[in-house]
Amino acid sequence: MVSLVIVSHSEKIAKGIKELALQMAPDVKIEIAGGTGDGRIGTDCLNIMNAINNAYSDDGVLILFDLGSALMNSEMALDFMENIDKSKVKIAKCAIVEGAIAGAVEASIGKTIDEILEALESYRINK
């Protein structure tokens, strides 16, 4: 089953989105990387690497992010990771709340990562 990683500037947002998504799809593995390592608002490349590692399986990992540096740090985290098959990790540029819920539901019914990305196209936003 595809797993999700939620990357947000705020730990509370990341936790809240995870909670919402699990309500719809309780069996999906969702890891979060919210805020910086020392509890500030922001994103943290190392937190994101840990979240991807914890979420990783050969079925794939879908990353959802909130704002600017969350994307840059997610891409940078992937650049640094050498112990996983990066082709199985995808970043969705969609509205994070809707994307997490729809993504989790799609994952829970056994969709592949590419099918999930396709389904999330309707929630795509410019970011």
Binding site: G37, G42, D44, M72, N73
Partner: peptide, 15 residues
């Protein structure tokens, strides 16, 4: 910088 900045300038100056 990448590990400690937190904002967008971390990945940017880090890169």
């Amino acid at each position: 910088l990448i590990a400690n900045v937190g904002g967008a300038s971390g990945p940017l100056y880090g890169t």
